[in-house]
Design a protein around this nucleic acid. Structure first.
Lengths: 190, 190
DNA sequence: AATAAAAATTAATGTACCTTAAGAATACAA
DNA sequence: TTGTATTCTTAAGGTACATTAATTTTTATT
């Protein structure tokens, strides 16, 4: 049922007993959002960590001048939140919006702290999750600094084919840090 | 003595007993490196996680065409390694080199696993460490995508004044993703 | 199906930043 | 202290990418 995906996601890294699993799932809230709905608005407090059961989300930062920068995409089986705002209880620095109808599991920070306290295995699980997220971001930084846009696009397409199928070119452009017009000329060259 | 800094660093987030602290420090190896010495070479295996007692290190990626991109700097009280290579036992994607004479504590992956197993509090500590590193990298990505070089420089200087004192303009330029020549024209405008 | 709205493309022009090259300042080694 | 390397700066010319604007294509709405 609705907890299968999230439990198997966690199960890749730690083994939970029945009791632990049911304590954990008792803290989850199901949320359904329609396409274009906001899961989080920039400057608001970010009260939840989200796990995607289905659908697609996009996190993006908006500058004063209205420029959008895509921070990340999430599809089924991914975790997403504004980690800065969520863990520091600060106004969020990004929006999270549904690219298509999506189903999410929500976990509040107080509940997450309870879970960490009661089931230390979850510290391990989140350590691994954060470690992988850190590595992903660091490799992205390296690529942004060292590669021209054309190669960044090629690598994005081959690394995230499932995402490419779901999101617009405009959204990919804002993830890569180029305009949609320029991405279009890049693609013509292929 | 030599363990004071690292223990107080850890103590900010978890409280260790005497026995735990001494088990932990028993796994640490002291290393001294001279200015310009390599702590890690790109493509080599990355066998250690490092904590800086003193000095300054710089991690940078080198492209086939010889272009350097600075991934991060580390000064006293910072942790540093090629986290991708270290945790996945893969060839490293970056070099780590001493900007000045430095003293480090080294921890191997097998020892770190022992520590995690024996003292679960260390899972929590590293969860927090990875979480902060992830947030730092994500905010950097946002800034790289949304701000022009001149503002990225200003923010770097105000966020990391202690690092600015230690490293060259050329190294800062390669962290910001601009050439030293262009950084020079930016600085003239201040 | 018709209309509206958003995305994608194309092309002309513009600019932030790069490349090359040379000179000046700073640090390093003999 | 002198020479040598490295960094930093300045300036001219070049390029990757942005901006603007118009057209086409795709998607969403009634």
């Amino acid at each position: 049922m609705q907890y299968d995906l999230i439990l198997s996601n966690i199960g890749k890294y730690v083994k939970l007993t029945e009791a632990e699993a049911s304590f954990f799932t008792s803290k989850l809230q199901l949320k359904e959002v329609g396409k274009k709905a906001y899961v989080l608005q920039q400057n608001e407090r970010c009260r939840h960590l989200y796990f995607l059961n289905s659908g697609t989300l996009r996190a993006f930062h908006l500058t004063a001048r209205g420029k959008e920068s895509t921070v990340m995409f999430a599809i089924a089986d991914w975790w997403i939140t504004d980690m800065y705002a969520f863990t520091n209880d600060q106004p969020s620095v990004m929006n999270i919006k549904a690219v298509e109808d999506s189903q999410l599991m929500c976990l509040s920070y107080p509940d997450l702290e309870l879970i960490w306290e009661k089931i230390p295995k979850f510290e391990k699980f989140f350590r691994i999750l954060m470690q992988k997220a850190y590595v992903r971001e660091q490799l992205r930084s390296i690529q942004n600094l060292s590669l021209p846009a054309t190669e960044r696009y090629d690598r994005f397409v081959s690394k995230y084919p499932a995402i490419v199928k779901k999101v617009t070119k405009k959204q990919i452009a804002s993830y890569l840090g180029v305009t949609p017009e320029f991405l279009s000329t890049i693609r013509k060259e292929r």
